[in-house]
Nucleic acid binder design. Sequence first.
DNA 1: TGTTATGTACACCGCCCTGTGTGCTTACGG
DNA 2: CCGTAAGCACACAGGGCGGTGTACATAACA
Lengths: 203, 203
Amino acid sequence: MTELEKGPTGRRRGRGARERILSASQQLFREQGINRTGMNELCAAAEVSKRTAYQHFTSKDELVAEYLRRFDPSVLSGVFDRTDLTPRERLLAAFDIPPTTPLCPYIAAAVELHDPQHPASQYARDYKKAVAARLADTAREAGATDPEQLGEQLALLIDGAAARTRVLNADAFPTAAAIAAVLIDNAIPATASDDRQREKVAS
Amino acid sequence: MTELEKGPTGRRRGRGARERILSASQQLFREQGINRTGMNELCAAAEVSKRTAYQHFTSKDELVAEYLRRFDPSVLSGVFDRTDLTPRERLLAAFDIPPTTPLCPYIAAAVELHDPQHPASQYARDYKKAVAARLADTAREAGATDPEQLGEQLALLIDGAAARTRVLNADAFPTAAAIAAVLIDNAIPATASDDRQREKVAS
DNA sequence: TGTTATGTACACCGCCCTGTGTGCTTACGG
DNA sequence: CCGTAAGCACACAGGGCGGTGTACATAACA
């Protein structure tokens, strides 16, 4: 890895250590958990000296917070921006999670850090609220009578599936998707499609 | 505390250190988390010498496993054994959680320990399955068409509310209860509910 | 009474953790 | 071609952790 990677993070000149650190964080924090991953191990995986790591992030806590911020694009936007789907399908697509996914990292962080004041915990809250808001937007688009409520309900289902998948070591998202389908059909007044969408986005 | 407390644990003769240790575990592990609670701190809170603690539990892992086993009577049985309620009311009563409750300790343990092989993680799985089974039993009693499915769905709702409450620092159980009411009414065929509410879903 | 199970007090070990200090190398930018 | 910022190697501080060793005290029961 002698190639330079310019570092899309900003104006770094060197060899892009920051990116490697964050990339290694994604992998190790999710695989092993935050508390069980030491900085030594992380630096080794990132092929970065510990000194360099602490020049980019003043503490592990800061690294953890930054690590969480790297999930939005892939997870949140990935589902909601698919224009090829109807709003209803988009709502359901949020439950199509590849079973490889270990656990929603925001829940994991909130539990592991165990401190609501921790920057990462605060960001986790913001993220969860953002997801619920996005779901509510989509619910509104789909014609739900109470979009906020439906968004909050679907968000709860996602979190429930994530938590339960973790505890039971078995995929719980299909169950959550089934509930979601019921809730969605109950929440969309007249035109309520059965399950295969007859395709009528309002009018 | 020079009084002897016989130890309701069984046939212990001494002063009941084991009970104090477990009692302190309940408090500290829930308040601070498992990983953030050291044995020194725990022993101090239990007013027990560390040596004694390690004579009762060969390791912290063993203590954690035993700590989890102490929840059944209060939580699981507490709701399902209430004969004053109809089956439907019992299903809904599972969502009446005092907002003081920090987080389902089984989820917390599974996340914190981060090892599916850990005895505590295995017990957490067993417990979660047991709860789902109890819910399914009650669902069957209430006349649901597919009790197993309803039990699993309600269990997922409980876990979702627990996880979301933790992350957002705001009570999510009312939302879960609302979903539960919908699911229950959808799952009980014609005029199943015998409790006081006479409002029918049918139309 | 004396034996035994129980609990105590406290120092201690080895390990791993986060975080630093210091001096050195490299590569980009002017 | 040189200056300087980025990164590296490596040892080490300081502390908390789980867990133990030892010597002593007390309560229960025979």
